[in-house]
């Protein structure tokens, strides 16, 4: 399991943590989907995505996260997001995706929520 140009992967016990290193427009969203699909293939069920270095997200990336979160829950796991800038949280809220994907203020609280 490895990261990509825009994402790096870490572990905390059985939880995989993705650090997103770029703004998530349509181009980078493809990379995000690839990383998350790989984790699903590897039967990883608990994932945290850290957005501390992200200042923009579009609907393609939000849709990707929503879809993966639903699939992880079907296998008994979950996807949690942390460290979102207020503009990002607003995008999730406008779409209504914050009712599907859990958002936490810090990585610590996202991990503790599993």
């Amino acid at each position: 399991m490895s990261g990509t140009e825009f994402m790096t992967l870490r572990e905390n016990a059985d939880i995989k943590i993705i650090d997103v290193k770029t703004d998530l427009s349509s181009y980078a969203a493809t990379d995000l989907r690839k990383v998350l699909e790989n984790l699903l293939t590897e039967k990883v069920s608990k994932v945290v995505v850290n957005f501390s270095e992200v200042s923009h997200i579009n609907s393609t990336a939000v849709g990707t996260l929503v879809g993966i979160a639903k699939r992880l829950r079907q296998s008994g796991g979950d996807l949690k997001l942390c460290n979102l800038a207020s503009t990002l949280t607003r995008t999730f809220n406008l779409i209504g995706a914050s009712s599907v994907v859990e958002i936490y203020e810090s990585e610590k609280s996202a991990i503790a929520a599993f």
Partner: peptide, 17 residues
């Protein structure tokens, strides 16, 4: 469009913003 859906949100965001 559904909040739990994976697509169809772009036009909605344009409309909102």
């Amino acid at each position: 469009r559904s909040p739990t859906g994976e697509s169809g949100h772009g036009l909605y965001l344009i409309d909102c913003l």
